[in-house]
Design a protein around this nucleic acid. Structure first.
Lengths: 334, 334
DNA sequence: AACCACTATGTTACCGATAACAGTTACTGT
DNA sequence: ACAGTAACTGTTATCGGTAACATAGTGGTT
């Protein structure tokens, strides 16, 4: 009963060939206006729904662009995603989203799944991938963009910023304002590579400035957010007084720390400085507002869209490397 | 040069028919173990990537489940999305995400786009749709789930809770604790239907309790978040003293209000109560933590997954209506 | 009248996987 | 020894669009 209405059916009803229907529905100007209109109306009234799968199969163009994100539940990545989605829609492309939940072993499986859908480009968040993933992606023969990082050994195009430099900005600022006893609050060593880079950057910058060793506080496995920052400080208790600055892997974590510290009755920034990362909304609205780094999540999305537009136009694709930079934003917590 | 490796190529290399390759890669038990293994290895070494598009076309099963969200950049929806994604992955299904950005006119276009991909089910967030969307969806002949609402006139299955009841819980609580002069902080009248339902529920509950008219504070077009709540209060200034409770459309908005109110030197909850909605992370971590309603975003996702599992199993699909309920969570802001 | 240019439509084959059905062995039991 | 069965593999046709090419009609030009 519920056999799908196809172009053939519409064609028969109108009295033309399926090809004409195909052309009419794609607004091919070689179809005369009366015919096109009649076809449109008939299609509508018959409840015809265009079959993108069939087109994708025949033309070998899926209309998809695949994106991997470590997590959707992250305002920064969501912002980039939205920019990508809106930008690519204009080009008639649909985003196919895959989330690795910060698990490396999942990325390969995810990429395989996405590639099986024949996307016209693949956008990966981050620059760290398993060798299997690298091989898979390299042999896929489609434009690749890595974003949110500036990998040394990119797979294709890159749109990102240096997490290490960004973190160095923070540490430099703290040192300039007289802080010396730093603690870093972030996820456990493991899957979150961007977090790890930030951690190492803090350690290195501290060494560069001749500070005592940075205390590493483990807020649990990625993704870490407000409650993990808060729990980490609660767990530490009064010992937090040993430090004069908490350098956090992200703004939500920083806010969690801020909340915990305030509950203890400590004054921020007088007793303790706190810094975040990412310029999340919470950084601006928190009280006091949080010192952070603006990484322009939305702008990254726009740049990727622009880049892909250029790549789709001319086949000449020498891999681009776009550093969108980032800006230090001093708040009231430091 | 970059002609895709197909099953035919793998078959030729191994010396079997394409059909055997197809079976082997799908773990059909009728293929002998040695053959299967050889095929797997050859496929791997040839860089074969399974073509899901072709399978989707041939079998008329896309492996997609389409889902619309008003916004990805909302921790609650993101949570539901994650639960859906993880749950459906086990069934070999991939999510196809579309975001309407809270624009009604976009939903129809979005649904059309999604339906063209032949999804095996369609999950809509919310129960308010244009007539065109309703017609489109009804004639699509696939399982439909509306979630995050309990519409009176559902299109198919429903997994949600009553936004009106939830808001009434809040108002009842405020009245019980002696508050009478309420203001509601939410998005402008317009696209956000869930927000509108909450607003009307507050007005109605206030009337029921014999309170003076509820002041409606417009925080701008949806989506509204922390900064909009904060801006609304800043704009109001000292006049906020007229009220003894701010009922906010969501936790982020409530946090924005809390932040603004605290900056003014008012004490919460002594001078003013503030309530949120949704049990976002911020509600728990804020200082004081925010009174809210837990709507169990993740649980909604799980229920939808379970429901779809049942629907896919037996064709007998009498529309289900699952009320996941919600629970009042008293914080320190009331 | 013959020819051309141009517009509008039709024909054919095919994209890659797989359902449905048809073999081909190998091995069993009587 | 031979039918009967199980285990495995092969053949054919097809899903719904569309690229590439073919063809019919129309009007203008020399």
């Amino acid at each position: 009963m519920s056999t799908r209405v196809t172009m053939r059916d519409v064609a028969q009803a109108v009295g033309v060939s399926p090809m004409t229907v195909s052309r009419a529905l794609r607004d091919d100007p070689t179809v005369s206006e009366p015919t096109r209109e009649k076809i449109r109306q008939t299609a509508q009234s018959m409840g015809y729904v265009y079959d993108t799968t069939a087109r994708a199969f025949r033309t070998q163009k899926s209309g998809f662009v695949a994106v991997t994100l470590p997590s959707v539940n992250n305002a920064n990545f969501a912002e980039t995603f939205r920019a990508l989605s809106n930008g690519l829609e204009a080009a008639g492309l649909q985003l196919l989203l895959g989330s690795s939940n910060y698990r490396v072993e999942k990325e390969e499986q995810l990429v395989r799944q996405l590639l099986a859908r024949n996307p016209e480009a693949l956008i990966l968040t981050g620059g760290h991938h398993s060798q299997a993933t690298r091989d898979l992606v390299r042999s896929a023969g489609m434009p690749i963009v890595e974003m949110w990082d500036l990998p040394d050994d990119p797979l294709g195009h890159v749109v990102g910023f240096s997490n290490a430099n960004a973190m160095a900005l923070i540490v430099d600022h703290l040192v300039q304002t007289g802080r010396r006893k730093l603690a870093f609050v972030g996820a456990s060593k493991g899957a979150d590579m961007r977090g790890a880079v930030r951690r190492e950057a803090v350690i290195e910058a501290a060494q560069r400035h001749g500070l005592p060793p940075v205390k590493l506080m483990d807020a649990g496995p990625a993704p870490v957010s407000m409650r993990h920052g808060r729990a980490a400080i609660d767990h530490l208790g009064r010992d937090v007084g040993q430090f004069d600055a908490l350098v956090c892997v992200s703004d939500p974590v920083a806010f969690g720390c801020l909340s915990a510290v305030q509950r203890m009755g400590l004054r921020v920034p007088d007793d303790l400085a706190i810094t975040g990362f990412g310029h999340f909304e919470i950084a601006k609205v928190a009280n006091p507002c949080i010192t952070t780094v603006n990484v322009q999540a939305e702008h990254i999305g726009h740049e990727v869209v622009a880049l892909l537009g250029a790549v789709f136009d001319n086949a000449a694709d020498t891999p681009q490397r776009i550093d969108v930079g980032c800006t230090f934003v001093r708040g009231e917590t430091s």
